[in-house]
Amino acid sequence: MSRADFHSQNLDSAREDARRLFAAKAEFRGAWLGWVASQIYALRPAEYASMVRRELQSLQENSDS
């Protein structure tokens, strides 16, 4: 499977996972960064974890604006 195919097939679930992780920010407060890092680290394959990390970063940037 090509990288583009993998990306298009997994984008919706990566966005869903990123929203779930971002929503937990209020619950975990100061411990959120460590918790979210461990959650992303556990995701497989690594390409999917990277997609979730990028989507999460996008959510954070949009919330800061």
Score class of each variant (00 low, 15 high):
Glu61Thr: 12
Asp12Val: 10
Gln57Val: 04
Ala46His: 10
Asn10Lys: 09
Arg53Asn: 08
Ala14Met: 06
Tyr41Leu: 02
Leu59Gln: 08
Ser65Arg: 10
Gln60Asp: 05
Asp5Met: 10
Met1Phe: 12
Met51Cys: 05
Glu61Lys: 14
Phe6Val: 11
Arg44Thr: 15
Lys25Pro: 00
Ala49Gln: 04
Ala49Tyr: 01
Trp35Arg: 06
Trp35Tyr: 03
Ile40Gly: 00
Trp32Met: 00
Glu55Phe: 05
Glu47Cys: 08
Gln60Lys: 11
Ser38Asn: 06
Ser50Tyr: 11
Ala18Gly: 05
Gln60Pro: 02
Phe28Leu: 09
Arg54Ser: 11
Val36Cys: 03
Phe6Asn: 10
Ala18Pro: 07
Leu43Thr: 06
Ala14Phe: 04
Asn62Thr: 12
Met1Val: 12
Arg54Gln: 08
His7Phe: 14
Gly34Thr: 03
Ala31Met: 03
Ala31Lys: 02
Asp5Lys: 15
Ala18Gln: 04
Ala46Val: 06
Ala4Ile: 14
Tyr41Pro: 00
Trp35Glu: 01
Glu55Arg: 02
Ala23Pro: 06
Tyr41Ile: 01
Ala26Ser: 15
Val36Met: 06
Gln39Ala: 10
Ala49Ile: 01
Leu43Asp: 04
Glu61Asn: 15
Trp35Thr: 02
Glu27His: 09
Arg54Pro: 03
Arg44Pro: 05
Ala37Asp: 00
Ala14Lys: 05
Gln57Cys: 03
Arg15Leu: 11
Glu27Phe: 08
Asp17Arg: 11
Ala42Arg: 15
Leu33Thr: 00
Met1Asp: 13
Leu21Ser: 05
Pro45Asp: 04
Lys25Gly: 00
Gln60Leu: 12
Arg54Val: 14
Gln39His: 09
Asn10His: 15
Ser38Tyr: 00
Pro45Gly: 06
Leu21Asn: 00
Ala37Gly: 01
Ser65Val: 13
Met51Val: 07
Ala23Met: 13
Ser50Ala: 12
Glu27Arg: 12
Arg19Ser: 11
Ala31Cys: 03
Val52Cys: 06
Met1Arg: 07
Ser38Ile: 02
Arg20Trp: 11
Ser13Lys: 13
Arg15Cys: 10
Ser58His: 06
Ala24Leu: 13
Ser2Arg: 09
Met1Glu: 12
Trp35Asn: 02
Arg3Gly: 13
Tyr41Ser: 06
Tyr41Thr: 04
Arg53Gly: 02
Gln39Ser: 13
Ala37Asn: 04
Val36Ala: 00
Gln9Asp: 12
Ser2Met: 03
Arg15Gly: 12
Ala23Gly: 09
Leu21Ile: 13
Arg29Val: 07
Glu27Asp: 15
Arg44Leu: 10
Arg3Ile: 11
Ala26Pro: 04
Leu33Met: 02
Ala4Tyr: 09
Asp5Glu: 13
Ser65Trp: 08
Gly30Gln: 09
Gln57Pro: 01
Phe28Ser: 02
Tyr48Pro: 00
Gln9Gly: 09
